[in-house]
Design a protein around this nucleic acid. Sequence first.
DNA 1: TTAGAATTCAAACGAACGTTTGAATGAGCT
DNA 2: AGCTCATTCAAACGTTCGTTTGAATTCTAA
Lengths: 233, 233
Amino acid sequence: MVSTTTGRHGPETRGRILDAAEALFVEHGLEATSMRMITALAGVNLAAVNYHFGSKENLIQEVFRRRLGELNQRRLAALDQVEADAVRAGVRVKPSQVLEAFFEPSLQMATDLAHGGRIFMQLLGRTYTEPNAFVRKFLAAEYADTLERFLAALYESLPGVPREEILWRFHFMMGATSYAIAGTDALQLFAGKFDDEDPARLIPRLMSFLLGGLRAPLPDFAHSGTAEPGDVR
Amino acid sequence: MVSTTTGRHGPETRGRILDAAEALFVEHGLEATSMRMITALAGVNLAAVNYHFGSKENLIQEVFRRRLGELNQRRLAALDQVEADAVRAGVRVKPSQVLEAFFEPSLQMATDLAHGGRIFMQLLGRTYTEPNAFVRKFLAAEYADTLERFLAALYESLPGVPREEILWRFHFMMGATSYAIAGTDALQLFAGKFDDEDPARLIPRLMSFLLGGLRAPLPDFAHSGTAEPGDVR
DNA sequence: TTAGAATTCAAACGAACGTTTGAATGAGCT
DNA sequence: AGCTCATTCAAACGTTCGTTTGAATTCTAA
C-alpha cells in the first residue's frame, strides 16, 4: 500500500528518496537517472521507490510538487500584497512590482542554499524545456492558475500596450530567468568567465535586465527582419 | 569502415539518418530517442547508424556539427561586416549591431522552414540546458571561438560598462532567445494564448526585448534584493 | 566478366532498465 | 506472549537499450 502522507514509521525513507532524486535529476536529467542510482544515493532498497511512490513517473511528479507548491504560493502572496498596497494608495500597480512578485521568489529560492532550494531551481530551470510530454503537461497544470493571475495583473499595469506583446515579453523573461537560475555554466560556455557569482547580486542584476526588456520600445514590423529602432534610449 | 565524408554510394543513407535523428531528438530528447526509432523513421537498417557513425554519441555530435558550423559562420560573417562598416565610417560599432549579428542568424535559421533549420534550432534551444556532460562539452567547444569574438566586440561597444555586467546580460539574452526559439509552447504554459505566432514577427519582437535589457540601467546593489530603479523611462 | 570493396541486412549479444514478487523484519497493540 | 501490518530486502521478471556479427547484396573498377 502506498502511503500518500507519511508512512507510519520508516525513519524518513520517503524524504531521503525525494532528496536523492532531486539531486540526481539536476545532475543527469530525468531519463538518465535510474531507480538504482536514486536508491543507492538515498541508501534504501531498490524496491522502496515503487513501494512509496508507485512508479518513477509518480516520483518525478512528487519531486516537483513538493517545491512548486510553496513557490507559487509565495508568488501569489507577493502579488496579493502589491495589489493591496496599490488599492490602499489609490494607484495602479507598477509593472516592475508584478515582475518582482513573480520572479523574486524563484530567485530567492534559487539562492537559498539552506533548504535545498538551489538544487531544485536548477532542476526547474532545466525542466522548462523538457521534451517528456507528461512532465510538460504536469508542470503546465501546476502553473496554470498562477500564470493566469500574473498575466492579468501585467495587462492591467500596462494599459496602453498590446497584450500580444506583453505575452511575448513575459515568455522571454521566463527564458532569461531560467538561464540565470540554471547556472552560469549551463552550457559551460561561460565557464571561468564570471568573476563574481555572488548569488545575492544575481537578483538585482536579473531584475534590471528584465525591467529593461519589458519597457523596451515596441517592435517595428515595418521592414522585414532587421529591427533597428534607430535611436538609443 | 566509417566514411567521414560521403559514403561512396548508398543513396543518401547518412543524410536520412541525420534528418531522422534531428527530428526525433527535438520530439523526445537525446536520451529518449533510441537507435531503433531513428532507423525506423529513416527507413534504414538498425545497424546502419553504427556502420556510418560508429556510435550514438558520434551521431549526436554529427547532428549538431552539421548545422552549428554554418550558424556560427553566418554570425562571424555578420560581425565582420558590421565592424568593417564601422571602420570605414570611422565610428564605433553599436551594441545593437553586435546583438543583431549574433542573434539574427539563429532566428533566421529558426524561422527558415525550407531547410529544416527550424527543427534544428528547437533542438539547439533545448540542448543549451542538456545535462549530458559530453554534449555540453562538445557544444562549448563548438561555440568557444564565436563567443570569444562577440564578447570582445560587445565590450568594445560599451566602453563605460563593467564587463561583469555585460557578461551577465549576454547570458540572460541567450536564455531569452533560447526560449523564443524553443517555441511558444515549450512548457505548454502559453498554449492557446498566442494569437500571432508569425515567425517573421518574432525577430523584431525579440530584438526589441534584448536591446531593452542590454540598455537597462545598471543594477543597484545597495539594498539587498529588490532593485527598483525608481523611474520608468 | 570477375575480383574486391562498400553497404545492407537479419539476428543475436550482454547490459541496464523499471517493476514485481514473496519472504524476512520490526515496531505497536491487545 | 502473540498478532498485525507497514516496511525492507534479495532476487528475479520481461523489456528495451546500444552494439556486434557474419552472411547477403550492391556497386566500382579492372
